[in-house]
Design a protein around this nucleic acid. Structure first.
Length: 556
RNA sequence: UGGGCCGUCGCCAAGCGGUAAGGCAGCAGGUUUUGAUCCUGCCAUACCUAGGUUCGAAUCCUAGCGGCCCAGCCA
């Protein structure tokens, strides 16, 4: 059995934690959190963060919270909250205690804001959004103070109350923290920490019409949950001084350490919630769980196993250098896992009728075939061998290329798990299309090789009558460009029109009629497939191709 | 001289002053009733560049070069 040789990864975050533990920080406690905003479904990129946070906690005997960063009710919904929890669980992780919400802390956050105002470290600004932007300055020029910056504590308290009570309209005022309008770090130029949004919140209802901003909310939420290591992606590096500043002004239980790592970039893939949402909203795909989507839900429906995703996350490592991982690595982890666990079965995608002329009509021989070539614990399945069979059209050629190892006129081929047959006659229709093959079998080749000759190929087959009709959906990469998302390209231009090819007339071996979506099968010589529960209705059987088998034919 | 971060094989990534791990991909063989799996071998005199320190540098210093991120009342 193969096992991708994942050297015990000793990435920099692990090292930081180990060092902290050795130094006796946080009294030996390790607490992380995964903090998604419920404004979309989780994707592979999130998987990296989930695996990181949860395994770190596991490894050091700590805890990992699941916290919804729900400070922008206009973009969030319960649907996303439910989907995210489902996906985290499916990946195999259990969060510490109850699900948390930043909105659980809205009261505390509000009181801390009042505290900042009282310390004269926050003020209500009534500049317009445009003015605030102008006053902020540019990357190279310092900003300038708002005329509202020097209001008295009393006036600020009163105006903040006006914001809170709904007296002020949206956009009329914001609460800003008083730091330094000339800071070279734009995030420190008096960032806004509260804005007015007269929106219904999925958790707090209509209790609030002011909502705290990320920078202000996140650090305090972390502190209230007594997180020790607050792991986030690189783009928040510039925000760390603000994270620290806020906590330094307030009387909070602790001061977590923010650590940034490079988010996952995958070639041939788009990992941006905004763009994935667009694919869903504009119906380029059937939904967030479309098997072409790089969402956890899509991958699950496609047939990925949680283990393969976790292994992949281990393989790619954790660093601060922001590179692009080859999607081939994900595919490797997938195949490697599926090869070990997938029961084998046969399914003919493009049926071509074969009649075994020296097999008695009506005679059935039940063949017992192992479900896995190396793992007996997966058991066996039975397939009747009959006079009429189907093989795949691509496994027969009249004028084959040099290295063709399948069936050709006058030659032999092994039917997997059954007999060696010889093609004696090719039947064609009026247009010259091959519609049937008359073959003869060698009865001395069941479970043993013929004497005195080598049979070069093995092909798969199903009995004509006893096989079950199935629809098979052949999935491929959603984008046909390595970086659909880079530069000024429009990722929609690179949607692969062949990312889904539906095969309606496939025939599967009888045992597949009892398949469930919880286990993926290997359709021998074709790839890994999983039953699509959502669309297998009313007796119709639908299988999704998770991934093809590695195919090196013609490469060497 | 706006700030922050990053630069080790085609890709990911160890390395933390003692003389370049590993994985993916690729190549060459072997086994095989899946052109799969599995097994074997090959694959960076070289660590962005140039100087310097040192007996010794991918690791330390200096100066360059290249890439990514930041001007939401998004997260």
């Amino acid at each position: 059995m193969s096992k991708p040789d994942v050297t015990p990864p000793s990435h920099f975050i692990r090292q930081i934690i180990r060092k902290d533990l050795d130094a006796g920080k946080n009294s030996g406690r390790v607490a992380t959190r995964f903090p998604p905003e419920p404004n979309g479904y989780l994707h592979v990129g999130h998987a990296k963060s989930i695996c990181l946070n949860f395994t770190l906690a596991q490894e050091f005997g700590g805890t990992c919270n699941l916290r919804f960063d729900d400070t922008n009710p206009e973009k969030e919904s319960q649907e996303y909250i439910d989907a995210i929890q489902r996906d985290v669980k499916w990946l195999g992780f259990d969060w510490n205690g109850a699900v948390r919400y930043a909105s659980d802390y809205f009261d505390a956050l509000y009181n801390y804001a009042v505290d900042l105002i009282k310390q004269d470290k926050a003020y209500v600004d009534e500049l317009t959004a445009d003015q605030i932007r102008e006053y902020r300055g540019t990357l190279k020029e310092p900003g300038k103070d708002s005329p509202f910056r020097c209001r008295s504590v009393e006036e600020n308290l009163a105006r903040f109350e006006d914001m809170r009570s709904g007296k002020l309209e949206e956009g009329k005022a914001v609460l800003r923290v008083k730091i330094d309008m000339a800071s070279p770090n734009i995030n420190m130029r008096d960032p806004v920490i509260y804005r007015i949004k007269k929106a219904h919140h999925h958790q707090t209802g209509d209790k609030w019409c002011i909502y705290p901003m990320y920078d202000y909310t996140h650090c305090i939420s972390d502190a209230l949950e007594e997180i020790t290591h607050s792991i986030c992606t690189l783009e928040f590096e510039d925000h760390r001084p603000l994270y620290d500043w806020v906590l330094d002004q307030l009387d909070v239980p602790c001061h977590p350490q923010q650590i940034e790592f490079a988010r996952l970039n995958l070639n041939y893939t788009v990992t941006s919630k905004r763009k994935l949402k667009l694919l869903v909203d504009e119906k380029y795909v059937t939904g967030w769980d479309d098997p072409r989507m790089p969402t956890i839900a899509g991958m699950r429906r496609r047939g990925f196993t949680p283990e393969s995703i976790r292994t992949f996350c281990e393989m790619i490592g954790v660093t601060k250098s922001d590179g692009v991982v080859d999607v081939g690595m994900l595919e490797f982890a997938l195949r490697d896992d599926l090869d070990k666990r997938a029961p084998r079965a046969m399914c003919v995608l493009n049926p071509l009728k074969v009649t075994i002329t020296n097999w008695e009509a009506g005679k059935q021989q039940m063949l017992t075939i192992p479900s896995h070539p190396k793992d007996e614990s997966l058991g066996v399945r039975e397939i009747p061998f009959t006079r009429e069979l189907y093989i795949d059209q691509t496994d027969f050629m009249e004028n084959p290329p040099k290295d063709f190892k399948r069936l050709v006129p006058g030659e032999e081929v092994r039917l997997r798990g059954a007999y060696v047959i010889r093609c004696d006659e090719v039947i064609k229709d009026a247009n010259g299309n091959v519609i049937e093959l008359k073959c003869s079998h060698d009865e001395n080749t069941l479970g043993k090789n013929p004497e005195g000759r080598k049979v070069k190929g093995v092909i798969h087959w199903v009995p004509a009558q006893e096989s079950v009709p199935v629809q098979v959906r052949l999935y491929d990469r959603l984008f046909n460009n390595e970086s659909p998302d880079s530069g000024d390209k429009n990722f929609l231009d690179f949607i692969n029109p062949n990312a889904l090819v539906v095969v309606d007339n496939a025939r599967a071996e009888p045992s597949l009629a009892k398949a469930t979506s919880t286990i993926a099968f290997q359709f021998e010589r074709e790839g890994y497939f999983v039953k699509d529960d959502a669309d297998s209705t009313g007796g119709k059987l639908v299988f999704n191709r998770t991934i093809t088998l590695r195919d090196t034919w013609g490469k060497g």
